[in-house]
Simulated scan of single mutants.
Amino acid sequence: MVNKRFFKNLDFTLVGVTGAILVFSLVMIGSASTDYGWWMRLGLDIDKLQEANIVQRLLWMKKEYVIKQFFSIILGIAAAAATVYIPYDDWRRYTKHLYIVNLLMLGAVLVLGHTEMGAQRWIDIGPFGFQPSEFAKLIIIVTLADFLARREGQLRTIKEIVPCFIFVGVPLLLILIQPDLGTSLVFVAILFGMLFTASSKPLMITGLFGAGLAGVVGLVWSHLKFGTWIPLHEYQLNRLIIFLDPWSDIQGAGYHVIQSQIAIGSSGFWGKGLLLGTQSFLEFLPIRHTDFIFSVLAEETGFLGATLFLLLFGVFLYRGVRIANESKDMFGTLMAVGIVSMITFQILVNVGMAVAIMPVTGLPLPLFSYGGSSMITNMIAIGVLLNIHMRRQKNIF
């Protein structure tokens, strides 16, 4: 029997905000996956769509991706519920096993995985496929939280911090080999976010981050100037720097960014209306239901809709920070900080690349972009946050 105090201590604000984002996600994915060719095959035309009211547009919407995303959400809710039910304190007994499973899973991708869009990231299980690197993000948060919590008060020097870099560096390297630069960068964000919280010298962690960032920028500059070797494919490098001047390669690496800017820039305050975004509907905007879903949102709902949407994420992240602050122990605090770092970084990069202020790394917008592995991982992460919040006081059950 479920204890009534179980629900009494549930963070309903976090649940409500998550629900609103998920509903918004289903609508926008349906809109993003609808194309003019599909309408033509139905014998309809764009004038009829423009004259229809919102309810009619939603009923006419192409629903293939929406249905798949809906089932991913259902699976994610079930996984989150299971995560909430098991006290997070118990997980510490299995972190070593989880770390090994993580390495095996990422290693299996290099052997058994299939290549899609130039990267070997997916493993097929029957008719279904999953992306291990998505689940790896959450596993590294849990295992690193235990790793750092056991060293609480000992992370004062670079020598004491080096093992933390090695701990994260091994799975990060396996992901970088796939290659999956975006997820590798998420690992870096998780590491520094959690280290900043765990270390008694946060200024030192900030300095290390700044030095690392300066080193990367210097290495890229040296490669462009003198041809120095860097551990990136040319297409990855082009995607990293093209946002600085997308018009230098209009039909190549800059095409995505340019079309995204046109979509967002033409939206106005109110937007063009649901299913009326021309860049999306006429298929000028590529990979619009995943990487550039925010561009579709901004074009159709305008400045007002995009702002309200980002405010929802703002409330979500605020609750995550508050849960980290109220946790009864360092293990819970570090897991919450890791989740907030992961989601914050992905939001900043995804929205940033849509408006051409961040590199195009292929990171999905959490809880919003189409993708089963990403959705289930983020839902489990929410389950972790709810678990920590519900058990923020000792002996609450």
Rank of each mutant, 00 (worst) to 15 (best):
T183C: 05
S184R: 02
L185G: 06
V186G: 05
V186N: 05
F187G: 11
F187K: 07
F187A: 12
F187D: 11
A189M: 06
A189I: 00
A189H: 07
L191F: 08
L191S: 06
L191T: 15
F192W: 08
F192Q: 07
F192H: 08
T197F: 02
T197I: 09
T197A: 13
T197W: 07
A198N: 10
S199M: 05
S199V: 00
K201Q: 12
K201Y: 09
P202D: 08
P202T: 03
L203S: 13
L203K: 15
M204Q: 13
I205V: 15
T206Y: 05
T206N: 09
T206C: 13
G207S: 10
L208E: 07
F209T: 14
G212N: 03
L213W: 09
L213M: 13
L213E: 03
A214R: 02
V216I: 15
V216W: 14
V217C: 15
V217M: 14
G218D: 11
G218W: 09
L219P: 04
L219Q: 14
V220N: 07
W221L: 13
W221Y: 14
S222I: 01
S222K: 12
H223M: 01
H223K: 08
L224Y: 10
F226W: 15
F226P: 00
G227N: 03
T228R: 09
T228L: 11
W229P: 15
I230E: 07
P231V: 02
L232V: 07
L232E: 10
L232K: 07
L232I: 05
R239F: 00
R239N: 06
L240M: 15
I241N: 05
I241D: 06
F243M: 05
L244D: 01
D245F: 03
P246Y: 01
P246C: 06
W247H: 12
S248D: 10
D249H: 05
Q251K: 08
Q251A: 04
G252F: 08
G252C: 02
I258Y: 04
I258L: 10
Q259W: 00
Q259E: 12
Q261I: 07
Q261P: 00
I262D: 10
I262G: 03
I264H: 14
G265C: 08
S267R: 06
G268P: 11
G268F: 05
F269D: 08
W270I: 09
K272R: 14
L274C: 02
L274T: 12
L275P: 01
G277W: 04
G277N: 12
Q279N: 14
S280V: 02
F281V: 13
F281I: 15
E283R: 12
E283Y: 14
L285W: 12
L285C: 14
P286M: 05
P286D: 10
I287T: 15
I287C: 01
